[in-house]
Design a protein around this nucleic acid. Structure first.
Length: 215
DNA sequence: CCTCGGATCCTT
DNA sequence: AGGATCCGAGGT
């Protein structure tokens, strides 16, 4: 914890993202998160921080959204306060990390799909890292790299949680963000609710392949 | 209960 | 194109 405090003092330009900032529709928050920082304090106390380079929005009336059919044990965090996490298990072996948006009672969130790491974690199995810049290029991969699982479900994004968000340190032009359709879903496939940082080598594989729009 | 399939990823 | 591997949702 003292490490975290010191780190914040050293980087006054990295302003923490608040719950209020996340209290908007997910389709607004998702593109705004591109270029922002996700930070994670690991078990050994070290801090990994990374630039968010790919996001997807999931909305209350969206059939692809886990909250579409109302609250359940799994998706409870989506109906909780904005600026908290929603972490779930997918395909029995990967986890996915979301930022909850909109007020309590409204089920919406932004899926973090890919990160460009500023610091490379020391003890990561080399067999998972043939290419260092792709270590977090996908929603399941980034959770594996940052050691994120359901223990972190429903926590506020805050240094005290060991997981937090910070605003962009430099402005990003709208033309640097590409908007396309979402990945891996079978419902509402036409909604253009995926955004990624143009030219980033860390966007997920399918995203690079499917890349269209903007120019 | 039982079955189906999923906001994935890696290997054939 | 298929397997790993768990569990929630929805129907019987």
């Amino acid at each position: 914890m003292t490490n975290v405090t010191r780190q914040q003092e050293q980087s006054p330009s990295s302003k923490i993202i608040t719950a209020e900032w996340c209290d908007r529709p997910s389709v607004q928050v998702a593109p705004d998160l591109i270029g922002c920082t996700l930070a994670r304090q690991m078990a050994d106390g070290s801090i990994i921080d990374a630039v968010i380079v790919e996001t997807e929005a999931y909305a209350p009336a969206d059939p692809a959204c886990h909250a579409y059919r109302g609250p359940s044990k799994r998706n409870a965090a989506m109906f909780g306060p904005p600026g908290h996490s929603y972490v779930y298990l997918i395909y029995g072996l990967y986890h996915c990390l979301n930022v909850v948006t909109e007020p309590v009672g409204i089920g919406s969130a932004v899926l973090i799909r890919a990160l460009a790491l500023n610091t490379v974690p020391p003890a990561l199995d080399p067999k998972y890292t043939p290419k260092p810049h792709r270590i977090a290029a996908g929603p399941g991969k980034l959770c594996r790299t940052l050691n994120i699982d359901r223990q972190l479900d429903g926590l506020p994004y805050h240094p005290d949680s060991g997981l937090w968000l910070a605003h962009r340190q430099t402005p990003l032009a709208a033309t640097d963000i590409v908007q396309t359709t979402r990945i891996g879903i079978s419902q509402a496939v036409e909604k253009p609710w995926r955004w990624y940082l143009k030219g980033s080598p860390a966007v997920s594989k399918k995203a690079t392949k499917t890349a269209v729009s903007n120019a």
